[in-house]
Every structure is written in C-alpha cells, then in structure tokens.
C-alpha cells in the first residue's frame, strides 16, 4: 500500500491549463489585443480582467477580441462592442460622464478638504518664531545661561 502511494507521489499531474496561441499580422495588433484584454473586465469573476480570468466567458471574449483585432477594428470599435453588450461595467477604466463624476472627482475633492483642514490647522497654531522677549524675560534667560555655564566649569 505504501509503495503504491509512494509511486503515486512520483506521478506528476499534467497541468490542464490550455495555452492560447494567437498569431497577429503586426506588433501593433498584438499590443492592441494585450491592451484590450487588460482593460476589459471579466463579468463572471468581477475582480479580474479578461487577461487574467480563466472563466469560460472570459475565454470566449478573449477570442472575440482577437477576432476583432485581427479584422482590423480599432480600439474604440471593440470597446463599444463590449459596452453595448455588457455596459460600462465591463470597463476597468470607466468613462467620465454624469454618473461617474463623483468617482473621478472624489479623490480631488478629498484632497481639497485635506489641504483646507491642514491650512486651518497651521494658521491656528500659535506662532513661535518672531516672538520677542520682554526685558524681564531676557534678564532671566541670561541668568539661566550664565548659571549653567558656571555649573559646567
């Protein structure tokens, strides 16, 4: 029994991942294909793009993208084709439009609020630099400094 189990350990399971081979006419097409599958979202596993996803639909959509690139379609045409079917959600980089204004503007809004809070905070802090000592304070300070030096000697 042990011998069988040991023998089984030695048998490596062949990885069943299929490798997709795509031939392109020119490097520009290949670059476009890679750019597209990196920017388009897989709708089944929503946190992956088409390039990373192993879902069946992602494979089909990669194939469609390849066919369209091969047929000489440009980026806009292919992205439109996808958006017509799956909506803006398919884009990892959503377009700037009315319902995405907050998404695009939000970070700048938060930055602005942060800067305003910071400016207010700095202004409120009592300034320290140009504060002059009164005559009495100066004498006290001098006495202290001299006292310290005497102690050191």
């Amino acid at each position: 029994m042990r011998a069988i189990l040991f023998a089984l350990l030695l048998v490596s399971l062949a990885a069943s991942a299929a490798i997709e081979v795509h031939q392109f006419d020119d490097p520009a097409q290949e670059a476009l294909y890679k750019e597209l599958i990196a920017e388009l979202r897989c709708l089944v596993c929503q946190n992956q793009n088409l390039a990373d996803s192993n879902a069946d639909l992602a494979k089909d959509l990669r194939e469609k993208t390849y066919e369209m690139v091969k047929a000489g379609k440009d980026k806009e045409e292919i992205v439109d084709w996808m958006v017509n079917r799956y909506g803006d959600f398919v884009l990892y980089k959503p377009p700037v439009q009315r319902n995405t204004l907050l998404l695009w503007g939000g970070p700048f809004l938060i930055l602005l609020v942060g800067v305003l809070v910071l400016v207010r905070f700095i202004r409120r802090r009592p300034s320290t630099g140009d504060h002059l000592l009164s005559e009495e304070e100066r004498r006290k300070a001098e006495a202290l400094l001299q006292g310290q030096e005497e102690e050191r000697i």
């Binding site: 709708l43 089944v44 069946d56 639909l57 089909d60 469609k64 079917r85 799956y86 909506g87």
Partner: peptide, 12 residues
Amino acid sequence: EGDTGIDWGVYG
C-alpha cells in the same frame, strides 16, 4: 458556441 449569449450580454 455561446455567440448569441454574448450578443445578449449573458454572463451568468
């Protein structure tokens, strides 16, 4: 082949 599915935006 799922072509019509893709045209209809089927994903689940």
